[in-house]
């Protein structure tokens, strides 16, 4: 099934070919953001624990240590996301979720764009819990929060479907490939009866359209036979 064009970000690449990438949804962006905040929280806790310990060991900790801690906390709060995104377009949270911030030409945002999209988080957060950002995401055609609109950036998803190690036989067209890929994407989640039933249908389709694949097939249960056809090593 063709993807909804509203869910794609497109860039012109070499040979003027359009590269269309799926846009990241609000849910996975929120999870990535939570993960980044979790990292920041852990870092803050480690810093507080280290300073508290130092304060016990050295009874009169110099004021500059506290001043530096306050400043580091400020930098983390305002620049953590921008610093990561200006380099590769990914914070650790986005990397974990397979998301990436890209500018209009498909490259990572430059420093200024990364600063704009992240300093504007304060406006996206208003009146609370990223309401303005969420509303903007839902209303804009490319799921852009206010920071993205002002920076000219979008968040795309880079996840590539799992390679099932399929050894493709000759003569397969797009429809054949789609059927086999759909089988491998779903078969692990099926109960035994459904799995056998669908495998039998697959075999019946193969017998009709690609009978040569069943030549010399061993006697195996239906799902294993499908596997033998598409994953055999000879």
């Amino acid at each position: 099934m063709a993807a909804d064009p509203r869910s794609l970000a497109d860039f012109r690449g070499a040979l003027d070919v359009t590269l269309d990438l799926p846009l990241a949804g609000v849910g996975c962006r929120a999870i990535a953001h939570l993960f980044d905040n979790l990292i920041l929280m852990v870092l803050a806790m480690v810093a507080v624990a280290a300073i508290s310990l130092a304060n016990v060991l050295v009874t009169d900790l110099p004021g500059w240590v506290w001043a530096a801690t306050a400043f580091a906390s400020f930098l983390a709060q305002w620049f953590w996301f921008a610093a990561w995104e200006a380099r590769t377009g990914q914070t650790p949270g986005k990397k974990l979720l397979g998301l990436r911030v890209v500018s209009r030409n498909g490259a990572a945002p430059d420093t200024l764009a990364a600063m704009i999209r992240n300093l504007l988080r304060v406006a996206d957060f208003l009146p609370g819990f990223y309401f303005a950002g969420l509303a903007s995401c839902l209303l804009s055609s490319r799921c852009q929060r206010l920071g993205d609109l002002a920076a000219g950036t979008v968040v795309v998803t880079e996840r590539v479907r799992t390679d099932h190690g399929i050894r493709w036989p000759d003569g397969f067209d797009a429809r054949d490939v789609a059927l086999v890929e759909a089988w491998y994407a779903r078969e692990a989640g099926l109960v035994d009866d459904q799995r056998t039933l669908l495998a039998a249908r697959m075999l019946s389709w193969l017998a009709q359209d690609h009978p040569q694949l069943l030549t010399g097939a061993p006697k195996l249960p239906e799902p294993e036979l499908v596997d033998w056809i598409f994953r055999r090593s000879d």
Binding site: M1, A2, A3, F11, G13, A14, V17, L19, D20, L21, G89, V102, N105, G106, A107, A108, D110, E158, V160, R161, D163, I166, A174, V177, A178, E181
Partner: peptide
Amino acid sequence: THFADTGLAERLRASAFRSHRLLAAR
């Protein structure tokens, strides 16, 4: 054009995007 939404088209797009991103950066 001929194998839209297949694993190979997706892999080609992912690699093309990664190289495009690298080459387009300044």
